[in-house]
Each structure stands twice: as structure tokens, then as C-alpha cells.
Design a protein around this nucleic acid. Structure first.
Lengths: 102, 102
DNA sequence: GAATTATATTCCCATGTAGGAATGTGTCAA
DNA sequence: TTGACACATTCCTACATGGGAATATAATTC
């Protein structure tokens, strides 16, 4: 999953499909990518569950499965509680360094 | 940055270095990886600013730069506002389907 | 059923990268 | 200064992956 998101275009696709399902052709047009390229990216995203598909006639409607992004959000969030600590540390060091200069 | 995080071992290293700076040897011992492998991963993390380094004698003390993870957290967070909507959609569909069955 | 549309898959090539082994570099200790 | 230690870098190989071009598949229309 982390791998799938590492690709910039795939992230673009996920954003594009976040609020509404859309056919492949729309993605091709909106992101200005080649159609086979889009299909391949969609396959990667499908395989890790980051998008859902629905067939309607000859069109395939894709939509971002926003729930699948939650693990990523949570993993990154585990570092959040360190932010304040580290900020305090940096600030303190800066103040000490300023004090020495006086 | 997204690329650097795509690697499982690198994520392990980031977690390990989140709360305290540690020399390379500690990482090697804790994660049971080969030393050159760890050094290479650390280089990748350094190049994208995900870790900071400090030399002390012959040891190199690494520490996760938790601020650098913020963009990832925020990117994933942009999907959060869709979670409730999509949940409602799924729930509604399930209820309709249940209703049909009655 | 043949042609057309929408999408998927395959083939080929170029590139990026992880691992392992070996070697290089910088620092300390005696 | 030499040896030992901590780490970084290089070389090689195997493998994954993205792009482009061509082709395949499925659904629709005439």
C-alpha cells in the first residue's frame, strides 16, 4: 500500500477519485496520461484495495476507497506526539546558542 | 519522500529513531539488518530529510526528523473528510439492500 | 455479425534499487 | 604510527516497475 502511494501519478489519481466515481476516460483526460498507463496504475491501486471498481456498460467506474488510506494516516500520526517534544528541544537549543553569543 | 517511506525497513528505522537519537550500531542490532544495508537506508532517509545526523567520535547518531513526516500525514488527512460521507453512502446502500430483501 | 468504443493486457526496453561482499574513510587508543 | 573500531561507499547481480506500442477483451451499435 505504501508502495502504491509512492507514485506521484497514483496519488493524483487517488485525489481525483476521492469525491466521486469516474470512468477511466475521465482520468486519462484530466491527468493527461496515456490510457494504458492509467489502466496499469489503476490495477496497482486495485490490488492493494485503494480503489473500488464498478462496471457500467463498457465503462469502468473507479472510486478511491478512502478507508484504505487510514492506515497511512495513522502511521504518520504516530509521529505527531513527538512534534511538540522535538520543537521544544530545537527551541531550547536555539536559546542556549543565543545566550552564548551574548 | 513518499518513495523513501515506501520501504518497510526504512519505516522501521524511522519508528526506532523517533523518540531518541541512536548510533548506527544500535539500529543494526535492533532491526537485525546488515550494517551496509542500514547505512544505505540511512542515506536515502538523509537525502530526503527524514533523519538528522550528528557525529560524536566514531559514532554517527541518527534521529528521525518528525517534522518531515508532516506532509505525508497531511496528504493522508485530506481524505479524512470523505470518510464520514463514504461511510454514510455504504450504510445507506446496505439498508436499501436489506429493505429489498424484506 | 461487423464495426466501434472503452478499457485491459502484453511485450519490450530503460531505469531504479535492494542485498551481499568487499573495500574505503574517519576516529580513537595505545 | 599502527591497529582496531564505527560507519560509508562501491561493485555486482537480481528483480521490480514505468513508459510506449501493439494487441486483446468486453460491451454497444448498426
Amino acid at each position: 500500500m505504501f508502495n502504491a502511494i509512492a507514485e506521484g501519478r497514483r496519488r493524483d489519481i487517488l485525489v481525483f477519485l476521492a469525491d466521486a466515481e469516474r470512468p477511466v476516460g475521465d482520468i486519462v483526460a484530466a491527468l493527461e496520461l496515456a490510457q494504458p498507463s492509467v489502466s496499469k496504475h489503476l490495477k496497482v491501486l486495485r490490488d492493494v484495495g485503494l480503489v473500488d471498481v464498478r462496471r457500467h456498460g463498457r465503462q469502468m467506474f473507479y472510486r478511491t476507497n478512502v478507508h484504505a488510506i487510514r492506515p497511512l494516516h495513522e502511521w504518520a500520526g504516530t509521529f505527531e506526539r513527538f512534534w511538540s517534544h522535538q520543537l521544544a528541544r530545537v527551541k531550547e537549543r536555539a536559546e542556549r546558542s543565543t545566550a552564548r553569543r551574548r
